[in-house]
Amino acid sequence: MKEYAIETKDLKIYYGKKEVIKGINLRIPKNTIFTIMGPSGCGKSTLLRSFNRLLELNMDAKIEGEVLIFGKNIYGEDVDPISIRRKVGMVFQYPNPFPHLTLYDNIAIGLKLNNLVKSKEEMDKRVRWALEKASLWDEVKDRLYEYPASLSGGQKQRLVIARALALKPKILLMDEPTANVDPVGTKNIEKLLFELKKDYTIVLVTHEPAQAARTSDFVGFLYLGKLIEVGPTKYIFEKPKNELTEKYLTGSLV
């Protein structure tokens, strides 16, 4: 049996009594970019947050079914959500570097507070490594001790990607990472995704079909909490099997 980066089994999510994710079976292969696309409010962000148990910050949310990360159910009884979140990093819709920390500390804080790095040299190395991975090092190497307010939206978002990478996760979840970034920044981030794919599995959420088409290997179309269609990007965009997918892609889905 092939082991997937992420696999869900009849995953259902409720907010209070309302069912927002309605039984999803999904397999995401390793080292690919998998895009979940769909209109606003279809449950994309909710689904994404169930992959690293960040959904639990919302007291109302209830989860049924299984989410397997590299074959292991993360909702099993003896699983510590903290260890899951270190393995499955996340980038958010709003570029959210910590405003009160320098660029350096933004990258270092996860490592420092988790006691994952012992010496200052090791930390310097890891910060540089993460910034290089996020293609930000050259732009910020001379101002590591400035605050993120001085960065552009796209740079902030790459800083946040570096912050997530610093913990050396296996999977990177991205919730509309370019929604608040200008076109140049968007291009840079999308270019970066191709680089990162070599080492990480990336799950991208977007409401922009064009972005899904540009960046991903696989696409899943989510509509009203149901996974309507999944497949290689090319097939979904060229010959969608489902009428709803076609409507969505042509912009005629109401």
Binding site: I82, R85, M90, F92, F98, I109, G110, L113
Partner: peptide
């Protein structure tokens, strides 16, 4: 979002 970001780093 800052709360999410903090928990997202695997912190207690």
């Amino acid at each position: 979002t800052y709360r999410e970001a903090s928990f997202g780093l695997g912190l207690s």
